[in-house]
């Protein structure tokens, strides 16, 4: 493997982490969706490069799924949901941007430290990939934790799943079945969550999940 292939893979996976971090400070929903589409685009590019490097044509299918579903259909659908819900002007923040960014940086550092130590014997390309994938997963989780709006929690979940796909493609010999099942489970989750969004909205006139807690009468 030449250094060029490694560098390009490194660049794409690194950009995925960068886009993840970008998502953390998007406090407008439209912008968030746009960044998510970019996230999926970078993922598709990265997977396609892996397909080229590993000479594994089935990975092109994965890349196509990522491109069509995640970069186009889901953002567009979410876009329309936001419009129909009429929340496109909402700004939501639980934790300030500064602390969130600091936390995100800490998480990236943590995943680097853990992954590079644990996988000393693995192929360097897979190592880097796994480390970046873990960062993406953790950043997705962080996003789900720091957001209050159900739509941005969904987006956090989707970006988390992108991290999983990155990890799956980085490791050689991962069968297509696994990726397809992951992709479909995310799609179903997306549908279920979308339906829930409308149900919540019907009942509470908001998609702020805090409303659920207030309704339950427990300490919120």
């Amino acid at each position: 493997m030449g250094t060029l292939t490694f560098d390009v893979a490194h660049l794409l996976a690194g950009s995925l982490v960068l886009v993840s971090v970008m998502m953390l400070y998007q406090d407008r929903l439209y912008a968030l969706l746009n960044v998510y589409a970019l996230h999926a685009l970078v993922l598709a590019a990265s997977v396609a490069w892996q397909a080229f490097v590993q000479d594994a044509p089935h990975l092109y299918v994965t890349a196509a799924i990522a491109l069509i579903f995640k970069a186009v259909i889901i953002p567009v659908a979410l876009h329309r949901i936001i419009v129909r819900l009429g929340i496109h002007r909402q700004i939501e923040n639980v934790v300030g941007v500064g602390p969130t960014m600091l936390l995100g940086m800490g998480l990236v550092a943590l995943s680097m430290v853990v992954m590079l130590r644990v996988t000393t014997e693995a192929d360097p390309l897979a190592r880097e990939d796994l480390a970046f994938a873990l960062s993406v997963v953790l950043l997705g989780l962080l996003m789900m934790v720091t957001r209050r709006n159900a739509v941005s929690q969904v987006v956090g979940f989707m970006s988390l799943e992108n991290g999983l796909v990155l990890a799956a493609t980085g490791a050689k010999g991962m069968p297509l079945v696994v990726e397809i099942s992951v992709a479909f489970s995310v799609l179903i989750a997306f549908i279920v969550i979308g339906i829930f969004l409308f149900r919540i909205r019907e009942r509470f006139d908001t998609v702020d999940v805090q409303a659920l807690d207030r309704f339950r009468g427990e300490r919120g």
Partner: peptide, 27 residues
């Protein structure tokens, strides 16, 4: 039993990060 959804997520997240930290220090 009575936490908010976001708190549950935070708990899961904190547990994951904590375990990773333990792994990072212990390895």
């Amino acid at each position: 039993q009575f936490l908010t959804i976001r708190r549950y997520l935070t708990l899961v997240f904190a547990a994951l990060v904590l375990l990773l930290l333990v792994l990072a220090i212990w390895q």
